[in-house]
Design a binder for these strands. Structure first.
Length: 308
DNA sequence: TATATTGTTACACC
DNA sequence: TGGTGTAACAATAT
């Protein structure tokens, strides 16, 4: 389940590996994950062979200039007037391999990030797109749920992309301040702090895992309503955001769900989780059992003693 | 077989 | 009407 630290991990690795490479071939095995144009694909998407062809045609022969990130969206900036926007949603993943990498792994990967998942050769049944570059290296896009997408957008149309318009500030950016963060709560006093943190209009990139961890570090229960939070609690929550996300990036992402790095290895953040996914396990600080509750349809874990 | 999972959006409701 | 709250949706492993 990639959130900002996981997406950032993928972006840094891909930027290093793909920069300068020329796309020689694109194999689109599942056309429904492909979009063309600034309009969003929507949930009820159907396969469009025409779009897949157009995607292929416009991308072939172009060089990757850079790979960047905004919120949880990846940007593959290409030569020519196009950019590929990628959202991994729940289970999207990229695996990159060159000849050396292939020898190391013998072409075997776990497409699902579970120790019990079998090693498979790529492309697997969950591989939907394969990029091949002129130096023989390959980039595989896998997605078990097929919720993610690759969208080709003309650079001139980037500002027409709806999601980009509704996104709030980057949590690690200079424009994200306590005053701005707190001000967004005024119009929705009854919302829980957990849902507030996960709202991309408030601040981007924070999902279920990191919101739980941030609230643990802040000592605030996820069920607390915005209007009831004391000034000091706002400060604690705000000050917990950057360190928790930075630790996630440093650990190369979480090891939970289906997240794997671009070389098929796991991130280490899972080792540091204090509350996420630890229902009925003792709190690492006080030993109290971690409890789980549902907020806006999402499971939220917290320590009833450490978090008031 | 029912359930759990997420970001996004369509839509109901003040 | 505009902003907020909520439910639905996509697909599949377990």
């Amino acid at each position: 389940m990639p959130e900002l630290p996981e997406v950032e991990t993928v972006v840094r690795e891909l930027d290093k590996k793909l920069r300068g490479k020329i796309i020689k071939h694109v194999d689109i095995r599942t056309p429904k994950v492909i979009g063309v144009g600034p309009a969003s694909l929507g949930t009820k998407r159907k396969a469009s062979p025409q779009k897949a062809c157009e995607f292929q045609r416009q991308v072939l022969g172009h060089r990757v200039l850079s790979v960047k990130r905004r919120a949880k969206l990846l940007f593959f900036n290409l030569t020519g007037p196009q950019t590929i926007l990628v959202h991994l949603k729940m289970t999207g993943q990229f695996i990159f391999e060159d000849k050396k990498q292939r020898q190391k792994t013998q072409g075997q990967y776990r497409v699902l990030n579970k120790l019990t998942a079998p090693l498979v050769a790529l492309p697997s049944k969950h591989t939907h797109v394969v990029f091949e570059f002129t130096d023989q290296s390959r980039l595989y896009y896998n997605d078990v749920r097929k919720f993610g997408y690759l969208r080709l957008v003309q650079d001139a149309d980037i500002l027409k992309v709806k999601e980009l318009k509704s996104y709030g500030p980057e949590p690690l950016g200079r424009t994200f301040t306590l005053a701005i963060f707190k001000s967004r709560s005024a119009s929705r006093p009854k919302q829980s702090i957990k849902q507030f943190l996960m709202d991309n209009a408030v601040v981007v990139g924070i999902g279920n895992i990191y919101s739980d961890e941030i609230l643990f570090q802040a000592g605030v229960a996820p069920v607390r309503k915005l209007a009831d939070l004391q000034a000091q609690e706002w400060v604690k929550i705000f000050q917990a955001i950057a360190p928790v996300l930075k630790q996630g990036i440093k650990a190369k992402g979480s090891s939970v769900g289906d997240f794997i790095r671009t070389d098929g290895t796991w991130g280490q953040m899972g080792k540091f989780h204090f509350v996420y996914g630890r229902k009925n396990q003792p709190c690492k600080k006080c030993g109290t059992m971690i409890i789980a509750t549902k907020l806006g349809g999402r499971t939220s874990c917290y320590c009833p003693k450490c978090q008031a």
